[in-house]
Amino acid sequence: MGLLEIFSRRQEKSKDVAKERLKLVLVHDRADLSPRLLELIKNDIINVISNYAEIDTSEIDIKMTKTTKEGDNKPVSALIANIPIKKLKMRDDT
């Protein structure tokens, strides 16, 4: 084991890796949304938005997350989409 490896091991404990991975996977589990379904949603969103704007498909980030409702503190799932737009297609034929 090299010196670098020893240091990196010290920085990231395997239990922290486990915890982070679990947190991520549970977000999907709890929302009943599989990565495959998320991929389908992502593709549909890309298709719709592409009608109006040029988007950077490689930078798209879509994920499920938990947030709390305003008013009461009941947890709700939310779909968060971050879609970088390169250029709007200035179409206004409606």
Partner: peptide, 16 residues
């Protein structure tokens, strides 16, 4: 293993 950081501890699991 918990001491070494190679096993999730009780707080970790309850947190999740």
């Amino acid at each position: 293993m918990v001491k070494r950081g190679d096993m999730m501890n009780i707080e970790d699991i309850l947190d999740i």
